[in-house]
């Protein structure tokens, strides 16, 4: 059996935004799907580990119970907002439906609440927009509708999987601002999954760097951006082109991510690491945290 995730530990508190960052194939979305008990089975299944939500053990929960949790207690926003909405219903109907199913609201109350939600996510003219079909709205507007639907039942946790990747940068910034404001105003926690390290700096409380299905570094944004310790995190930062770096060659990370079918008795990054030593190829480093919560999985972390 291949292993896409290898012992990922995440903890999220009320009102916190945690970003899960990694390049394609590192296991970000699979993490989100396992939290939601949505892994396609077969071929995939959770083989070990547990998920606790509000002190409840989620293993052994029936599919019926899971359905109640998803959508009501845990909201979800995906990358492609236009495809995630149903093309044959107006967006107002879709938000209303979520309210009726999960909260049992009457039609009149659900209608009123829908308009409030559309206003809350920053859509202008909510009455007019409620009457439109997804294809009549821009990508950014559809993503606002998705967020309205995801937060309709005031979930404790919102999982946003690459929520802004399909959007233009200026719209992306608006959507991230919106998500961040929502965590400030309510106690909702957000798990933000992204490949783009840049967007997490100003919009999250904690950052987790995932590589080949393992957490290799975790900390507050400043720990990661100013005091990165793992060679992979350092590599990601040095690979980002910026105007200030003009003329200097960028650092590229040679090689490829190990396959889920490799059994790893070594560091997952050993094959691509510029600092690799013999020990890294023989033993597996443990994840070790400092008191301030900045943690790294590396035998030779950089200390600055």
């Amino acid at each position: 059996m291949g292993k896409v995730l290898r012992g990922v530990d995440l903890a999220l508190e009320e009102g916190q935004t945690l970003a899960l960052v990694g390049e394609s194939g590192c296991g970000k979305s699979v993490t989100a799907l396992s939290v939601l008990n949505l892994l396609p089975q077969p071929p995939m299944s959770k083989t070990a580990g547990r998920i606790r939500f509000e002190e409840r053990e989620m293993d052994g929960l029936s599919e019926l119970d899971w359905r109640r949790v998803r959508g009501k207690e845990i909201g979800i926003v995906f990358q492609d907002p236009v495809a995630s909405l149903n093309p044959v219903f107006t967006v107002g109907d879709q938000v209303e439906e979520a309210l009726k199913v999960h909260l049992g609201l009457t039609v009149a109350v659900a209608k009123k609440r829908t308009l409030e939600l559309l206003t809350q996510v920053g859509l202008p003219e909510p009455e007019r927009i409620a009457g439109q079909y997804p294809h009549q709205l821009s990508g950014g507007m559809c993503q606002r509708v998705m967020i309205a639907m995801a937060v309709a039942c005031e979930p404790k946790l919102l999982i946003a999987d690459e929520p802004t990747t399909a959007l233009d940068v200026t719209v992306q910034a608006q959507i991230l601002d919106l998500l961040f404001q929502m965590t400030q105003k309510s106690k909702m926690a957000v798990l933000l999954i992204t490949h783009d390290l840049r967007i997490v700096r100003n919009h999250t409380d904690r950052v987790v760097i995932l590589y080949a299905g393992e957490v290799v570094e975790e900390g507050m944004p400043d720990d990661i951006f100013l005091h990165a310790q793992h060679p992979y995190t350092e590599g990601l930062l040095a690979a980002m082109p910026t105007f200030g770096q003009q003329g200097k060659p960028l650092t590229s990370i040679e090689g490829a991510v190990p396959s889920p079918f490799d059994t790893l008795t070594a560091c997952v990054f050993a094959d691509r690491c510029p600092k690799v030593q013999e020990k890294c190829r023989k033993e597996k480093p443990l994840f070790e945290s400092e008191k301030n919560g900045h943690g790294v999985r590396c035998f030779y972390p950089s200390k600055k």
């Binding site: 821009s138 940068v169 200026t170 719209v171 608006q174 601002d177 100003n202 105007f243």
Partner: peptide, 25 residues
């Protein structure tokens, strides 16, 4: 370094992951 057009200013902020003041699309 010092964009002058309000759109370039917005784009620069957004490209660094900062918040922006613009509305709409």
């Amino acid at each position: 370094k010092s964009p002058r057009h309000p759109y370039t200013q917005t784009l620069l902020k957004a490209s660094l992951g900062a918040s922006v003041a613009v509305k709409g699309e």
